[in-house]
Amino acid sequence: MRNVIEGFLRFQQEEFPKRAALFKRLASNQTPQVLFIACSDSRVVPELLTQRGPGDLFVIRNAGNIVPSHGASPGGVSASVEYAVTSLGVRDIVICGHSDCGAMSAIAACTCLDHMPAVANWLRYADAAKVINAAQTHASPAHRLQALTRQNVEAQLANIKTHPCVALALQQGTLSLHGWVFDIESGHIDALDSRDNRFVSLAEHPEIHA
């Protein structure tokens, strides 16, 4: 914890003065154009991956980069999606999975989660990806996990489309969806190409979306 506090002190003393005008502007207003939904994994930092600064991204992070489908009992993720789309008017939503994801590893390996019932209940929102993955043949456990990570991104894109605010914005052409998978070791991102439903290099195809 000491390192965290020391980091804040360096920010306050060294970095904040350099951006004082920016923070003064942000103190009373935010206009992010992108909602970025990522895993809570400590190795995945949306602002670092995209080289964005304060005020640029509206970020939701949770175990497995999950978006529950629209229902009668909305939670924090649903409320944040609704706020980002309806109030902030974001133009793009990115759902970003990543390599070596603990949530996806637990699903792929059918890990017993009786000792973590809240986690087990949360991961049920990835059941569509789980069922599809289980019906396929994989060369190795690593390939199974890789496929599941991508299938989960696709499942969460399907889930988010059930939210009325998202459905309306998509129909009106004011919103675009993006599905990404970040590889921690290489720094590479693959993105879902909706034209043929496959993941391709984002660096080589920066124009694609889901």
Rank of each mutant, 00 (worst) to 15 (best):
H138T: 06
A109P: 03
L57P: 13
I95Y: 03
S176Y: 02
V200Q: 04
V119A: 12
Y83G: 01
R195E: 03
L88M: 04
S28P: 00
P46R: 09
I93N: 08
H188M: 02
A120G: 13
V181F: 13
T162L: 08
S201I: 08
L22W: 07
W180H: 13
G89F: 09
V77D: 01
P68A: 12
L148F: 14
G55E: 00
V45G: 05
H138E: 01
Q12F: 02
I66G: 08
V44K: 11
V94T: 03
G102E: 08
A108T: 03
D196V: 02
V166K: 11
E82G: 01
V94I: 15
G179V: 06
N3K: 07
I37N: 02
V59G: 11
A109L: 07
Q12P: 00
A21K: 15
D183V: 10
G173R: 05
C112Q: 07
G102N: 07
A135V: 05
S40A: 15
G97D: 09
A109K: 15
N121P: 00
A135K: 15
V67R: 03
Q136N: 13
A63K: 08
G173D: 05
R43M: 06
N197L: 09
E154V: 15
I95M: 00
A21N: 12
N159L: 07
N133M: 04
A84M: 06
I5L: 15
A167E: 09
E154S: 11
V67S: 02
H209C: 14
Q171Y: 00
H98A: 04
D127N: 14
Q146E: 10
N29M: 05
D196F: 14
S186K: 14
K24R: 14
D100I: 06
N133R: 02
V200I: 13
L177M: 13
